[in-house]
């Protein structure tokens, strides 16, 4: 029987995975709390004091706790520390699902970030859009800037993270 494991390169050690060029640093981020919030986002905002509008693709999120717009009635709340809210349905009209294990986070930082973004997507690197969800190198990701204009963060389905990492490895040397 063929050993199919030889066909695929092993997934990187996400705790230490880093790629570096003179104009870019790409890191894997771990340890974040991610909640998917669906339904009445205004009710969620009142409950948590977080902005219901949330950030879209290429908007700049600030701080250690922020929200990304996924769809008209759905956001992804992200925090470096646990939220003080239990997952589940709320009678005020929204549902909270723990999503830490669902999405892997990758951070791309440096002056060459815009040209890498232009290779991966068809979106105008200078523009903004309501939803953070887009196709990045063919994978469905949530994409936004964090802290400043040259730092991009991606949330990708965990099963696609090794593929996206491989794509980034090849894109930065090509």
């Amino acid at each position: 029987m063929r050993n199919l494991a030889e066909k695929w390169s092993p997934a990187p050690d996400w705790r230490t995975a880093t790629l570096q060029t003179p104009g870019l640093v790409i890191r894997s981020l771990t340890g974040f709390t991610q909640y998917l919030v669906s339904g009445d986002l205004a009710a969620w905002s009142r409950r948590t004091d977080m902005d219901a509008a949330a950030v879209g693709a290429l908007s700049v999120a600030q701080g250690e706790r922020y929200a990304l717009r996924v769809a008209r009635d759905r956001i992804l709340a992200v925090s470096e520390t646990p939220f003080g809210i239990e997952p589940g349905w709320r009678a005020s009209g929204f549902a909270v699902s723990t999503f830490d294990a669902g999405l892997h986070m990758i951070e791309i930082e440096g002056p060459d970030m815009s040209s890498l973004f232009a290779r991966a997507t068809t979106l105008d690197p200078a523009g903004e859009t309501a939803s953070a969800a887009l196709l990045f190198a063919g994978a469905n990701v949530l994409c936004y800037r964090h802290g400043h204009a040259d730092r991009l963060r991606l949330h990708v389905d965990r099963a696609l993270a090794p593929y996206l990492w491989k794509w980034l490895e090849q894109a930065i040397v090509a």
Partner: peptide
């Protein structure tokens, strides 16, 4: 390639639709 407009997100590539 063609650009379509999502009423929520705005202009995006046709491959997203």
């Amino acid at each position: 390639m063609q650009i379509f407009t999502c009423p929520f997100c705005g202009p995006r590539d046709e491959s997203e639709f």
